[in-house]
């Protein structure tokens, strides 16, 4: 499975790619929204971890611009729940909303895989 991680926080990108590679997924990282949009079209991921507050383009703006195929699953993430409601995330096209920090990074990847398996 091809996984794209879009987040401006290095440690978030690193931990997510580490755990995804560990489970034999192909991972690419983008450090801002613009780069994320580019990789989205070139890499054609099956799963996207998308942060909301990022430089250049926010996660929601990326979602608006991208021609999202219904087979691609998007997990929207935010470190500040005060900024967005889960319903809003769903309306924007996200399949799941996760508040950072995660309680357990392994259960995050497990939920993501279940999401993709169910497509």
């Amino acid at each position: 499975m091809k996984v794209l991680v879009v987040d401006d926080e290095t440690l978030v990108r690193r931990s997510l790619s580490r755990v995804c590679s560990g489970r034999n997924h192909e991972v690419k990282e983008a450090e801002d929204g613009e780069r994320g949009l580019e990789l989205w079209s070139s890499f054609q991921p099956d799963l996207v971890f998308l942060d909301i507050l990022m430089p250049k383009l926010t996660g929601l703006e990326v979602l608006k611009k991208v021609k999202k195929s219904p087979t691609v699953k998007v997990i929207l993430m935010s470190a500040y729940t005060g900024g967005i409601a889960p319903e809003e995330a769903r309306a924007a096209g996200a399949d799941l909303f996760l508040a950072k920090p995660f309680e357990d990074i392994f259960s995050v990847i497990q939920r993501a895989e279940e999401l993709c398996d169910g497509r």
Partner: peptide, 18 residues
């Protein structure tokens, strides 16, 4: 503060778990 700290914390905790 929550936003600024939660992001690195996500990574720190996640990496520690990995």
């Amino acid at each position: 503060i929550a936003h600024e700290l939660n992001n690195p914390l996500t990574g720190i905790r996640g990496l520690a778990q990995i």
